[in-house]
């Protein structure tokens, strides 16, 4: 049994939750003092959950994800984050960053570019690593160049840009701006709401491989089954992704409240697209060194992480 922090989908408050592996699957019980207890299936395959899913190993986390604002410039249906115009104060953010000075800081939100003090925050932060954004702000070339001046003119642009199966035109403009400047981004996040969308997402990634070198795939499905007739289990996503990319590298796998992620390396993607399909999920090499996150004080409620550092196919 694993205890965690979750978000109540009715009142959007952080509440305690318990995850339990049983012979019938993996279940989460949310304990909301206002809305009551709720129980739902998180994953049907215990094997998958044990091997890829939730882990609690705080000692090995070397990055911290920090929400700096609740504001956002989009209104995505699948987003679980409570939306408002409140921003966290710069002092509070910098104090937290200083407290975890031995960890890399990922800035998130809401949409962090909506924070009016974003540039000041980054310039005062010694351990800033990545900005998790939808990229709309970087569709403006002037804003993009200012950001580059601030963070240093390196090939790797320190952002993780969310790309959906039907990407927003501003996101695409941002990617083409990055392409014109010869930049690459760490991760592009592909939000997958159905198995059909996986193929679509991989096609889109295929168009931006020179920019998006490492993709983090996530399923924004609602574990409580309110947004879909059928719960999409992450093991199914894995199988589907592997059927398209038989050999790939997973660099990181995080299990959140209702979000799981898979990372794929673009450098292998191209050469592997044509390889024969697989029929089950297979993995090699699991290490206990997640690159992200989890915080002792639950600053951001993703309390688990597992890094699967290499994914090797058959060697005959």
């Amino acid at each position: 049994m694993i205890t965690t922090v979750s978000i109540c989908l009715a009142c959007h408050k952080e509440i305690p939750a318990v995850i339990e592996e049983t012979w019938d699957g993996v279940f989460m019980t949310q304990k909301c003092p206002v809305c009551g207890d709720k129980k739902a299936i998180v994953e049907e395959s215990v094997a998958f959950h044990k091997a890829f899913g939730y882990r609690r190993n705080k000692k090995t986390f070397n990055s911290l994800m920090l929400d700096i604002t609740d504001a956002c410039n989009t209104n995505c249906k699948l987003c679980y984050h409570p939306r408002s115009d409140t921003h966290k104060g710069i002092i509070e953010i910098l104090r937290t960053a200083a407290k975890y000075s031995n960890r890399n800081i990922w800035l998130s939100g809401g949409e962090p570019t909506c924070h009016p003090e974003l540039f000041n925050i980054i310039s005062c932060m010694s351990n800033f690593k990545t900005l998790i954004t939808n990229g709309h702000a970087f569709a403006d070339m002037r804003y993009l160049q200012e950001f580059i001046e601030l963070t240093g003119d390196k090939k790797e642009f320190p952002c993780e840009i969310s790309i959906n199966p039907n990407p927003h035109k501003l996101t695409l403009e941002c990617l083409s701006n990055l392409r014109s400047l010869g930049k690459t981004i760490d991760c592009g996040m592909f939000s997958i709401s159905s198995l059909r969308n996986i193929e679509k997402s991989l096609d889109i990634w295929g168009q931006w491989l020179d920019v998006v070198t490492n993709a983090r795939i996530r399923t924004p499905f609602n574990v409580w089954g309110q947004q879909a007739n059928k719960t999409l289990f992450m093991s199914e996503v894995y199988k589907e992704v592997i059927s398209h990319i038989p050999r790939f590298v997973i660099t990181e796998d995080l299990g959140g409240n209702s979000i799981y992620n898979i990372n794929l390396k673009a450098d292998r993607y191209l050469s592997l697209c044509s390889a024969p399909n697989r029929n089950a999920f297979d993995v090699l090499a699991v290490s206990n060194a997640p690159d992200m996150l989890a915080d002792d004080n639950n600053i951001y409620p993703i309390p688990y992480g597992l890094m699967v550092n290499e994914f090797i196919g058959d060697v005959s």
Partner: peptide
């Protein structure tokens, strides 16, 4: 260098 399969 062998694929690993997890069986429920």
């Amino acid at each position: 260098q062998c694929p690993i399969y997890f069986i429920d």
